[in-house]
Amino acid sequence: MKKFLLPLLAFALSATAAAAQEEGRPQRTPKEMAARQMQGLTKQLGLSADQSAKVQPILLARDQEMMAMRAQMQAGTADRAQLRTQMQANRSKYEDQLKAILTPEQFTQMQTLEANRRQRGAEMLPEGKMKEKDGNLKIKTKTDS
């Protein structure tokens, strides 16, 4: 009887936890994420109306691609190393596009804001989960030592 109840209890608890997590934080669409980012960038960088109109589609395309890659990773249909390389290439592509629109001061300020955001994210992780390598933050995995 115990052999039957223990797996059933474990399944029930995991299903309840997953449902609670889904209810707690609804996933934003790429369009919602891009709009929110646009508001922040407009305010923090002082973008003109012309700059905002040019930046919005870039943010939307970036967020759509990132969501598609995350879905592939979660589904287990893509190689992690390949996705990481693709994400880095996309980041460079979108930075180049933004650099063409923003003033040099705005671009530098945007890079500073992103570095601060990454640093805050790293500080929120439990001790020992991050390490710095070549100026970039990396999440340690069980295979890293």
Rank of each mutant, 00 (worst) to 15 (best):
R70K: 03
A122F: 08
K131D: 13
M124C: 07
D144G: 14
E114K: 10
G128C: 09
T112N: 03
T141H: 12
L41M: 13
A61T: 08
L45V: 11
M69G: 03
R117K: 08
Q37W: 13
K2R: 06
I139H: 15
M130V: 08
T16N: 03
E132R: 11
D63G: 07
L113C: 06
L125S: 09
A19I: 08
K131E: 14
L60G: 04
S52K: 02
K133S: 15
M69T: 01
E132T: 14
G121V: 03
A81C: 05
K129F: 14
Y94F: 04
I139S: 13
Q27C: 13
N116F: 11
A71K: 05
Q64H: 08
A61K: 11
A34R: 04
K99C: 01
G24Y: 13
P57Q: 03
S48F: 10
A81M: 09
L47Y: 06
K54G: 00
Q51C: 01
G135P: 14
K93N: 07
D96E: 05
Q74D: 07
S48Y: 11
A75Y: 05
E105T: 12
T85R: 02
A61S: 02
A17G: 03
E114P: 03
G40C: 12
Q97L: 04
G121C: 05
L41I: 12
A81Q: 12
G121F: 12
M87D: 02
R36H: 14
